[in-house]
Design a protein around this nucleic acid. Structure first.
Lengths: 381, 381
DNA sequence: TGTTCTCGTGCACACGTTTGTCAAGAAACT
DNA sequence: AGTTTCTTGACAAACGTGTGCACGAGAACA
């Protein structure tokens, strides 16, 4: 009887190790029933198969023993891990936390758990992360790091796991996406500047291999072209990344070669803050000499000097919408609209001044800063 | 033979559903060996039991089939999920992302996956989250939401799961903690102001039920008491939370009752920005009329107006240290120091001015903003 | 050549669930 | 009363992996 010996040994060992995590078997013993009965009694979907008093008895025992279902065992059996993955480039970038937060909220509501990972924009780290998450058994993925035509998408569709792109648009037919209308955002910015009399407008853009940087630049050019008869001339420099440092350097390069620039449209607020830093270092007044518009309305952009006029991105809404789509995909529900493009809104603050008018917009009024933003909605709704 | 029918049905069904996720059995078939051999061949720790050529053959088949280990099955068998949980109050609060980011980095290095959750400071949500994470099988927990003597700790120790508190100190003997010296931080601030001639210093503090708010207030009072012979008089108001709005309201209450205040030490940067907003709305100059010091050195605090003098908190280091401790606990390694208190650093910028001197510190120099910070280290190292 | 030892592989059980199937008993029908 | 229907709970087979044990083959030794 070597089997018996082995069995006993193993089980006693595991009992020693796992302090005392209770299983349905413990609950069943306590309630004096078979464990399948416990399983059904505790599962809301199968509960109708069990008599009410039995359910009550089982639940009482479960509570008494401090029973907690083993999600791994359940996941293994049902092939549903109740887990989703979120991949961002860098949680430290202030655009991402509101998105992740919104996703976590939505999935917590349906009992799902959210795992996160950072790629730092390295395709290899992204690939490794996707691989690891699939191993982990995520039921879906929300990815904010896809480049245009990202090869990483193949790994997901191959593994047959639902993916939705957020913030960036991979422009792939296989992946639903939720993003903001980047081109439109830049058009709003350029028109806003043109209305203030600016003609020599420059773009301090971000990386062109991601949709955000690319579409924003395109939108900028399109807007300038539309205003060409008014004498609006486009100029552009690009940062290697959406960071303050890159914005600072790009701005430096821009001004070294172009001396008639009166306004800058930055690819996002980080780049804008970098521009601001360079202008400050050079002693160039903003908005006195050069006006500036950012994008995303990151935290504290209303508190910096000057309060930054920027294009607001509904980051939380991005996360919420992406979650809705992913949840539908996981449930197998047909998803009606899987190419969501949210409308950006211009927030007029203090970093844009009218040109040719000697009176500068000075923040001499003492109205509440939080209420001072002037929202200018995109015209075509 | 009803069994056969059943089996066939089940397996064919699952084959249909799970597109085609490969298992070790598939790899074993491909390599013509038993799957236990595959299991060992793919496991670095047991690989030495297998002949090199066999390992090669197995790995080739695994790669050819696109085999990905099923983490859930592995976790169930080994009782090790390679998963940790991080609990914060709100990812949208800019203190948290760097912490979470650092944790994710450290655990990614050892192949662990990080799941996150937000409590919004609701004890019930925290309890639910801890419960859910334990169900999920996390091997450890890093919690940034513990209140002092938090009852939620009981659930963790009862489940026998390693926990380390970060940022906040639950002051429990059962939980290691990694935090910054909050009291010392406020002392630095008060001394800095005293050195600039301030005598009427007020504290705009945060909630007192969490260690951060509590210790910062204590540190503030201690510093004032130490300077009592110099005529330093402490005053304090408190926000219900560490938010801009609460800071604004608290500042309003403060100034309504105290008209001789010349300096404010805020409980953190959010509260400081709130103070700034109120001062601005009231037309009170900062630092001209009232000096201000914040804490944490959140992102963009060097770009706001005025550039905020603040006490820097090494947030990423908090996450890294907490991870180190948790990893040691998970491995069973004895952890040398499980009460880590990091030293805060004062960053002198533009929101503090000397009193009684008619010349105000105006930011008229054009040196690089990023390099303008003056770091004042805590004296007793 | 027989014995012992090492090394590599196969076998089978267990981890904790979920769930299809079925037996037993009660209730309702003919 | 006999038969059918319905309810309730028990049984056992997976989900995919890790690992102690057994076993066979080859090497080393007397």
């Amino acid at each position: 009887m070597p089997k018996k010996t082995k069995t006993t040994k193993t089980s006693s060992l595991s009992l020693q190790e796992r302090s005392s995590r209770k299983t349905i078997i413990d609950v069943a013993k306590c309630a004096g029933v078979h464990w399948s009965t416990v399983s059904r009694g505790l599962n809301p979907e199968k509960r109708h198969l069990i008599s009410p008093e039995m359910i009550e008895r089982v639940e009482a025992c479960a509570k008494k023993l401090g029973y907690r279902a083993n999600a791994m065992a359940s996941a293994l059996r049902t092939q549903r891990s109740r887990t989703v993955g979120v991949i961002v480039s860098n949680l430290g970038d202030p655009v991402h936390p509101p998105i992740v937060r919104a996703i976590e909220d939505r999935f917590a509501e349906i009992g799902y758990v959210t795992i996160v990972g950072n790629t730092d924009n390295h395709p290899l780290r992204q690939a490794a992360l996707i691989d690891r998450f699939i191993q982990q058994g995520v039921e879906g993925l929300i990815v904010a790091t896809f480049e245009r035509n990202d090869p990483g998408i193949a790994a997901c569709v191959e593994a047959n796991i639902p993916v939705v792109a957020v913030f960036r648009d991979p422009e792939s037919e296989f992946v639903p996406s939720v993003r903001v209308d980047d081109a439109k955002a830049m058009e709003l910015a350029v028109h806003h500047l043109a209305e203030h009399g600016h003609r020599h407008i420059a773009h301090v853009g971000g990386p062109q291999n991601v949709s955000t940087g690319y579409h924003r630049y395109r939108g900028f050019r399109r807007a300038c072209k539309a205003l060409a008869q008014d004498g609006v001339a486009p100029t552009a420099v690009f940062g290697e990344a959406f960071t303050v440092e890159e914005g600072q350097f790009a701005c430096e390069r821009l001004l070294a070669e172009n001396h008639d620039i009166t306004a800058i449209v930055a690819g996002n607020d980080m780049l804008a803050v970098g521009c601001l830093r360079h202008l400050r270092n050079r002693g160039i007044s903003c908005p006195g000499s050069i006006s500036l518009i950012g994008m995303n309305d990151m935290l504290f952009m209303d508190a910096i000097a000057p309060a930054l006029t920027t294009i607001s991105t509904p980051t939380a809404e991005l996360g919420t919408q992406a979650s809705h789509i992913l949840i539908a995909m996981i449930k197998g529900t047909p998803v009606q609209n899987d190419r969501i493009v949210l409308k950006p809104v211009l927030l007029a603050r203090d970093s844009v001044a009218a040109i040719k008018l000697p009176t500068r917009a000075r923040s001499s009024d003492f109205s509440d800063t939080a209420k001072r933003d002037v929202r200018i909605r995109s015209r075509q709704s």
